[in-house]
Design a protein around this nucleic acid. Sequence first.
DNA 1: TTGTAAGCGTTATCAG
DNA 2: CTGATAACGCTTACAA
Lengths: 350, 350
Amino acid sequence: MSNATISDVAKKVGVSESTVSRYLSGFKVRNSELIKRAIKELNYRPNIMARNLKSGKTGMVAVIVPDITNPFFAAIVRGAEVAAGDDYMLQLISTGDDPEKEEAAIRRLVGRVDGLIYVPSKENSPAISEIEAKTFPVVFVDRVISKMKNFDSVLADNHHGALLATKHLIEHGHTNIAHIAGPVTSTPGKGRAEGYSAALKDSKIDKNPDFFVESDFTVLGGYQAMMSLLNLKKRPSAVFVGNNLMTIGALKALKEAKVKVPEQMAIIGFDDHELSDLVNPPLTVISRDAHLQGALAMATLLERIKEGYQFPPKQLKVDANLVVRMSCGSTCPYRKTNADKHVLSSSISS
Amino acid sequence: MSNATISDVAKKVGVSESTVSRYLSGFKVRNSELIKRAIKELNYRPNIMARNLKSGKTGMVAVIVPDITNPFFAAIVRGAEVAAGDDYMLQLISTGDDPEKEEAAIRRLVGRVDGLIYVPSKENSPAISEIEAKTFPVVFVDRVISKMKNFDSVLADNHHGALLATKHLIEHGHTNIAHIAGPVTSTPGKGRAEGYSAALKDSKIDKNPDFFVESDFTVLGGYQAMMSLLNLKKRPSAVFVGNNLMTIGALKALKEAKVKVPEQMAIIGFDDHELSDLVNPPLTVISRDAHLQGALAMATLLERIKEGYQFPPKQLKVDANLVVRMSCGSTCPYRKTNADKHVLSSSISS
DNA sequence: TTGTAAGCGTTATCAG
DNA sequence: CTGATAACGCTTACAA
């Protein structure tokens, strides 16, 4: 039975409920030893719901991600969890990229959580009234909703990452460089597309509209996008793919079409993976620290929960790094991705 | 302000709180239209904590996994989430394979959730009193705690999967077959090791103790295990690796040691991955449906929550299938893993 | 330091 | 169908 109440304890010891309550809150009380014993014997556990009702706090933070199955989002969640420590527990929602589900979920969250770490699927998601009303604090991660740009957020330096990726391709002599983009209605989709364009412009390479294909961040989308690229009369010789899942799809297409990488098609992805250096050929990617993003988001959220909207919005950004392997035809020696090194080198800017 | 209470609504309409409460519970009341309007205007939302306190229910189910970052566990979580539908929301805990954290987490869960889906890290974890006391229903997934074998569980057919894997190797003419095992103190570690042994025995192949190395289900562990295998005076010609992460580690070791797969070393893994057919060479694996495991677990748990311990423990098992690709030297044509097909073909036995 | 009592917001009971 | 009243289990003024 875990249904002993504070009153049971009080009765057993012969004090009032308040005394037991005070003991529990760490105050000095006379019969603390007796109370301690009674609690043990009755296996008393404070009823959290009752506490929450009194305090108005829940000790919960929600994390909404498009897809927990994507290792990148899983890393964000994990980062958030470790940053929460013993203070808060996590409620997880993965929405399957469905803005309506997101909205419904957020509505259900009211009163259940003290704050929200939110990775929205689309920038043009309906501005959610619960958030606008600041019913509870929200920190956006990786993506923001455009109408809510002045909230706390922890993004990645998508623009710079894409710039690095595209320049890497250019440095390898490519001029016909395609980009398989995520939805340009999403923060990373847009940022990476812009970085791609900027790199081309910097090098005075004309943009070929055929070489820009907007997809949807999924494996299938990446596959189809690459196929359409391969069907072009004039194929690109290199492609920068806008996220991890689409890169997998693109590689599948390349393999199926028996296109040699990097000889016939150089490829660079966004977001690293434990298996990236085992695929054929080892994949050159842009990498950023998703775990850190999650942790920073949680830290920011906890601050916000504690201090309210006293301080101005924090807009953090983690940097994006080039991890050179073989898929762009690099002659560089093989470099092992070192997770630890990576974390240390991640710089944060606001 | 979402802090309007039922009493505010009642006052505004000029009825009693109970009437509003009844309206909310779907009963017929006279002024329902007025109440409806008042609720809208005041933006009233029932206070969940108060409801929970009254009802003793929380509408939450906890999921404890060793590591949300492992795509296999992520799939379980996702499966559980979709099976929960709109009835329950998920609280996620990943413990980093630390039994003590598990225990602490479970303790904190009391009163916060109506049930638990539990993937314990070790079979010999301390039998947790909260669970034994049936404070809330628990369904074990993928792994069980040995002292609690007669609880609800949804396992995989590890024995059969390992048997398939090892036989596949044998059919390719291998007799020096190693196994990189997970902890034999874990359910899958033990089951797969036993399946491996059974296959050897079936084919009257003597077990070489050098060829059995117990590891820890991590990338690093797999790497080290493979390295130790490679350092053997008499190397195996094939190896069955006991989970996805160790397989990655083993492949890294193989690559580093420039051992050709499958010519010099055939390899088969347990658990498929989106990237498995893109690594070099495409990886032959045993696959089972983690998403289904999660979904079944949630279904069982919800039943248990609703009906209590009326019905006997359900011990479900999803089957394990061989997905043949190239890493065992198969001459079979390339077969694409088809997730949909896979779900349909997953059979369940109890 | 301690006990009494009020209240957090809801729902269930019971009489009308 | 409705309204008053009493819980659910805890915390916190307030008074002693």
